[in-house]
């Protein structure tokens, strides 16, 4: 019996690691970034200029990085939402069983393509295409990044939306059809509204994934820290800034601390999106 108790304790401690890890992540991000809050103070982050290395005056304003992330994410959602929701409707309601069995692993396949490979594809194929299409000086733009991010978000959003659609009780569909509604009317007037909370949660999780994505945007968005809302302009996201600059920064410097602050902001945003999405899923009984 002592062995039984020991094993239980072992499993319990393993499971507790997750809690421990979350705490550690928050603690270490705060630990590395904390001194910045005292001097120069958090107000320094609220600035339009990000000039972390300068002989004259350094600026650690993350606003242009935040808008960069927001622009790329927003654009990408403009593509992701219709594509994924229609894709999910197709897989869940229209595709034949054989088609489903082929399409689902294919979507899974997309999820496992490394982001650096997608970034590479974007760099050598997509960017030149965008450049020629719009007659730009460079194809490295918010739009190019958004298109790649769409590819990264699609598997998440399609799969979760499909789960949501599948979780709509069969009886709703039967009732609608019994009233003489066509299949299509049933889909758009009964099934989608019923699945909406799950689809919204799926989109939120997709946004979380897109905001946190690093390599693809680092490679194709042009990385210029300028505040802009133009889709065809080069931008720089929060994630790309950390990835590009952390390698050359001296540990413990203000620049280093500012990069950790960006990490904290990212962590907070994705954490909130995640928690809200889970709440929605649990509330509407769509948690698997």
């Amino acid at each position: 019996m002592w062995k039984d108790k020991a094993m239980r304790l072992l499993m319990l401690s393993a499971a507790s690691t997750s809690i421990f890890l979350v705490a550690l992540i928050f603690i270490f991000l705060m630990k590395e970034s904390a001194p910045f809050a005292l001097k120069p103070g958090l107000g320094a982050l609220i600035d339009r200029q990000w000039i972390p290395v300068s002989f004259v005056q350094e600026h650690f304003g993350i606003l242009s990085l935040v808008t960069g992330s927001a622009l790329v994410t927003g654009l990408s959602m403009l593509f992701t939402i219709p594509l994924s929701v229609l894709g999910a409707i197709y897989i869940a309601e229209i595709a034949s069983p054989v088609e489903r069995e082929i399409l689902k692993p294919f979507i899974e396949l997309l999820a496992s393509i490394p982001s650096v490979v997608l970034g590479f594809f974007g760099l050598v194929v997509l960017a030149p295409l965008i450049k020629n299409l719009f007659g730009l000086g460079t194809g490295l733009s918010a739009l190019t990044g958004a298109m790649l991010l769409t590819l990264m978000a699609i598997p998440t959003v399609i799969t979760l939306s499909e789960d949501a659609i599948m979780s709509v009780p069969r009886a709703y569909k039967d009732a609608s059809q019994a009233l003489g509604a066509s299949d299509l009317q049933t889909i758009f007037q009964v099934i989608i509204p019923a699945a909406l909370p799950g689809i919204i949660a799926a989109i939120m999780l997709g946004v979380g994934r897109v905001i946190g994505e690093t390599m693809a945007v680092l490679m194709v968005t042009g990385n210029s820290a300028i505040m802009t809302w133009s889709p065809l302009a080069p931008v720089r996201t929060m994630t790309a800034t950390i990835a590009a600059e952390m390698g050359e920064v001296s540990f413990g410097s203000l620049h280093y601390q500012a990069l950790f602050w960006i990490g904290l902001v990212l962590l907070a945003v994705t954490f909130i999106l995640n928690v809200i999405a889970q709440r929605v899923l649990v509330r509407y009984g769509m948690m698997k």
Binding site: L24, F251, F271, N274, Q278
Partner: peptide, 29 residues
């Protein structure tokens, strides 16, 4: 419930943030 929340949180942490965390904890600390 706390363990489950922690797992969901970990699943949503951006990969670059894992990089920062790894740098802070494993590489430096």
């Amino acid at each position: 419930a706390m363990i489950r929340l922690a797992i969901i949180t970990l699943a949503g942490v951006p990969s670059i943030v894992y990089g920062l965390f790894g740098l802070g904890l494993f590489v430096l600390f």
